[in-house]
């Protein structure tokens, strides 16, 4: 156990015991409104609940990891935050999700507006294939009907690409199609696109699962810097990744097949990985199931 803050380069990729990220404020101050608060939230597909009864607060400017075995509803939960879940026919939700104190499922709330406040990065990089790198980055900003002057657009594109650690690699070919980039670059392009829309929080649904280790490292390094400005929620199947990059970890699991996933444990990442409070968490982390 070491107390000095570690940089990612120093980390052993498979290190599990050591607190790999310098601890941050583990839990939010009870008085402040967290950027994201879920209260007894459930989401279902055609009447079959995928995840149920989730209550948790996610603190600002931190990375929160959702981990758990397949089918425990963690992706569904993530997709519920920006109301993407409901785009699937017969998908329903119950309970509350508050974005800075405002219920995103409240009456009269336009899901389009919610999605403009929440950025999302998907499992597979999905840049718009017909668009140039620059237009990909600016796509979200343009949707917000901002009248962007040429210089403002160029600045926004540059700052977003810099924030996504991609600027140096693409600055000479901004007009070329985003689909021409490598898989890892495409994923960072998608992160830049999310950042350029100036979201309040960023959701990442297994952003590295389709990438090679080098590209994964680039994304993980990026997350360490994103944490300074953004609230990030990431779903990952990779426990080492959760241990490396997150401040808080939420462990989800279903009691049996066809049962909805539930939040089993939610705590500071160090605690979850070194002294899990639940036997199920300990078993999952040790690789005994899932």
């Amino acid at each position: 156990m070491t107390q000095q803050p570690l940089t990612l380069e120093q980390l052993e990729p498979l290190e599990l015991q050591a607190p790999v990220v310098a601890p941050r404020r583990p839990s939010p101050a009870p008085t402040a409104t967290p950027p994201l608060r879920m209260t007894d939230f459930s989401a279902s597909y055609a009447g079959r609940p995928a995840v149920a009864g989730v209550t948790l607060d996610i603190p600002a400017q931190s990375v929160t990891a959702f981990i758990g075995p397949s089918g425990c509803g963690k992706s569904t939960l993530l997709r519920s935050i920006n109301r993407l879940h409901e785009t699937i026919p017969q998908a329903t939700t119950a309970g509350r999700i508050e974005l800075h104190g405002e219920d995103v499922y409240g009456p009269g709330v336009d899901p389009v507006v919610v999605r403009q406040r929440v950025g999302m990065v998907f499992q597979r990089a999905n840049p718009f294939p017909a668009m140039s790198i620059r237009d990909n980055v600016l796509a979200g900003a343009k949707l917000r009907r901002q009248r962007l002057s040429k210089t403002a657009a160029a600045e926004l594109a540059e700052s977003a690409l810099r924030a996504a650690n991609l600027w140096d690699e693409v600055k000479d070919r901004l007009r070329q199609p985003g689909a021409g980039l490598s898989g890892g670059q495409q994923q960072r392009l998608c992160i830049a696109r999310a950042i350029a829309a100036q979201p309040e929080i960023i959701l990442m649904d297994e952003p590295c699962s389709a990438l090679d280790p080098i590209s994964t490292l680039a994304i993980e390094e990026l997350m360490a810097t994103l944490r300074r400005d953004y609230t990030v929620v990431i779903v990952t199947h990779n426990m080492q990744q959760a241990a490396r990059i997150s401040d808080q970890t939420a462990f989800f699991s279903a009691s049996a097949l066809r049962q909805p996933g539930r939040l089993i444990e939610y705590d500071d990442t160090t605690t979850v990985f070194s002294h899990p409070g639940e036997q199920a968490t300990a078993d999952y982390i040790a690789g005994r199931f899932g």
Binding site: T87, N126, F128, P129, A194
Partner: peptide, 29 residues
């Protein structure tokens, strides 16, 4: 049209028509 493209547009806060313009029409041109 790949679901990925459509979800990319929707998650950016695109309306239905904007999703068509960003994802569906370029794909099917």
């Amino acid at each position: 049209t790949p679901v990925g493209s459509i979800e990319a547009a929707v998650a950016l806060g695109a309306t239905r028509w904007e999703t068509a313009r960003l994802a569906v029409l370029p794909w099917s041109r």
